Simulated scan of single mutants.
Amino acid sequence: MVSAAAQTAAPAAPFEDAPSLTMPGAPVRAGRPIAIHTADLPANEASGLVASRRHPGVFYWLRDGGGATTQRPRAALYTIRLGDDAQAYPVRRGENFPFAQVFEAPNTDWEDVVMDDDDNLWIGDIGANDCVSKQYLYRTLEPEPDTDDPFIVTARYPLAFPDPAPGCKTRNAEAMLWLDGELYIFAKTANSPVYRVVLPAERNKPVALLPVTEFDYGVDKISVSAVSDDRTRLTLAGHARYWVFAADPKLKGDAFLRKAMSGKPVHTARFDSAAGNASVEGGSYVPGTHDLLFVAENKEIFLVRDEPAKPDKR
Results as ranks from 00 to 15, higher is better:
S3Q: 09
S3P: 01
A5M: 14
A5N: 11
A5E: 15
A6D: 11
A6N: 10
A9L: 10
F15G: 02
A18I: 02
P19N: 11
S20D: 06
M23H: 04
P27T: 08
V28D: 03
V28A: 03
R32G: 01
R32L: 07
I34D: 01
A35M: 08
H37V: 06
L41T: 05
P42K: 04
A46E: 00
S47D: 07
S47L: 05
R54V: 02
P56A: 02
W61H: 01
W61T: 06
W61S: 02
D64R: 02
G65C: 04
I80M: 05
I80R: 00
L82G: 00
Y89F: 09
Y89R: 03
G94R: 01
F99E: 02
F99M: 06
F99D: 00
V102M: 06
A105F: 06
P106Q: 14
P106S: 14
E111Y: 01
D112I: 00
V113L: 13
M115Q: 13
M115R: 15
D116C: 07
D118P: 00
N120Q: 12
N120E: 10
L121M: 11
L121I: 00
L121K: 02
I123F: 01
I123W: 01
G124E: 09
G124M: 12
I126V: 11
C131F: 07
S133H: 12
Q135V: 06
L137G: 08
T147A: 12
P150K: 04
F151W: 11
D163G: 08
P164M: 10
A165V: 13
E174D: 12
L177V: 10
W178T: 08
L179G: 07
D180R: 11
E182R: 07
I185D: 03
A190C: 07
A190F: 09
N191E: 14
P193Q: 07
Y195L: 06
L199I: 11
V207P: 08
V207T: 15
L209E: 15
L209S: 14
P211E: 11
V212S: 09
T213E: 15
E214C: 12
F215L: 14
D220N: 15
S223H: 05
S223E: 06
D230N: 15
T235S: 02
A237H: 04
H239M: 08
A240S: 12
V244W: 00
F245C: 03
A247T: 13
A247R: 04
P249Y: 02
K252V: 08
K252I: 02
D254T: 10
S262F: 09
H267A: 12
H267D: 12
T268S: 14
R270S: 10
F271Q: 00
D272G: 12
D272E: 15
S273W: 13
A274H: 10
A275P: 03
A278E: 04
V280I: 14
E281Q: 12
G282T: 05
G282P: 01
S284V: 02
Y285D: 00
V295D: 02
A296M: 06
V304Q: 01
R305F: 05
E307M: 14
K310I: 07
D312S: 12
